[in-house]
Design a protein around this nucleic acid. Structure first.
Lengths: 222, 222
DNA sequence: CGATAATTTGATTTTTCTCAAGACGCGTGG
DNA sequence: CCACGCGTCTTGAGAAAAATCAAATTATCG
């Protein structure tokens, strides 16, 4: 394992808690489980038994196409819930990209609870809304050019400005970023270099980026 | 109104009915309404009062970004349900691209029914699953090259092979297609021309395409 | 039939990809 | 502690894809 371990959700290592993020009532039903970096959490087409809430670490979801190209569905940080499916099977695979602790929440149990507890039902509803927003955001991302995609990605990873520092620790590889943004590794690298040249960011090390000019990034973000 | 009116969902003008497509029990609660071509059905950020089921005609949903670029969310044909939202507001605008008849189904009524009728609840669930699939498909579309995107679009519009003829009537403009695929109009035109040159399709008229070689398109579709 | 909008085609520029080489970081074993 | 090896990352040069700008053609509607 050559990869450095990250257990931070952001610069502070604190769970990011977006206002109205769902998951409050549901998570008490979960049992914790640990996954080492690179462990598969579930595979595409497996039955969706659980919802997963991240306590620490980072997870990616992805699909591999027949021709070998890979699409990253999303990156999930502490506080995020992944594995949300409407159907009975997972449509993506999920893999830890750092050592992780995750709460496993049984889907059947949740569904049963939702039937009698309106609060649980509302939360479940909100989870779908959240996933839906995530996908719409991803679609809007993919119709833009490389600079705009990278800027959007960095702002997404940085979280809200209220969360403090501008130092982003990236737990994922350049390949993961490229496959999330629908670009090649080289284009991601060059775009980082461009953004650095225009003083919007600073590439401190491979895995650590400093935001120097958020409004420039936001301007790109559209 | 310079645009020709289309009231077909596909070559046959029949509602396309994908197996397991939801909407059976819900639609009886709807009241029909007609929209002329180019009429706005609802706008982004308006409260989501209704679900909409298309009886005849075609509808597009879209968003306009600050910089004026437009993203088409999807095209909806007879039998399709659009306007499905988890939140209280529409995240896209909807517009008729041909004269349309649409069933308006009150959201509150549906929600109330869902609470007591499991069949309605299941259907509502399935609607979200369907929208979710649609978005995932769109994401996978946008990471491909122009030929693959256009091929995928044509196969989508043609519907399953079982539905018979290979003649596709396109109710949308080239601009709509381009904005759906994240390409320019010119690239869409040229790709049509390329596909015609390789005998995969035949551009009969602006709005009528004949599929000459589905397996070639499917090969592109990945 | 003429006006207007939509579509197609061409020439050129810009963007991104591909292929290739070199640099860097990290862990291992001497 | 340092050298080595391996995988990741960066940079460069050239090719390919798509966008842009411009002009010509076709469709549609009054």
């Amino acid at each position: 394992m050559l990869m450095q371990n990250f257990n931070h959700s952001n610069a502070q290592g604190l769970p990011r808690t977006i206002p109205n993020r769902p998951g409050g009532a549901i998570e008490f039903l979960g049992m914790p489980k640990n996954f080492p970096c690179n462990a598969e959490i579930y595979g595409e087409c497996e039955p969706a038994e659980y919802l997963y809430k991240i306590v620490s670490g980072t997870v990616k979801t992805y699909r591999v196409r027949i021709d070998g190209r890979r699409q990253i569905g999303g990156f999930y940080l502490p506080g995020d819930i992944f594995g949300v499916e409407v159907g009975e099977e997972h449509t993506f695979s999920a893999e830890a990209i750092s050592d992780c602790q995750v709460l496993l929440i049984n889907r059947r149990v949740i569904m049963a609870r939702a039937a009698c507890e309106p609060a649980v039902a509302r939360e479940l509803w909100a989870l779908f809304g959240h996933e839906s927003e995530r996908m719409q955001h991803h679609i809007l991302l993919l119709i833009r050019n490389a600079q705009e995609r990278v800027a959007s990605f960095l702002l997404e990873m940085a979280g809200p400005i209220s969360k403090g520092s501008n130092i982003i620790k990236l737990p994922m590889t350049r390949r993961d970023i490229a496959d999330y943004l629908g670009l090649t590794i080289e284009t991601v690298c060059r775009t980082f270099a461009n953004l650095e040249a225009t003083a919007a960011i600073e590439v401190h090390s491979h895995r650590q980026i400093v935001l120097r000019n958020r409004s420039a990034l936001r301007r790109l973000n559209g």
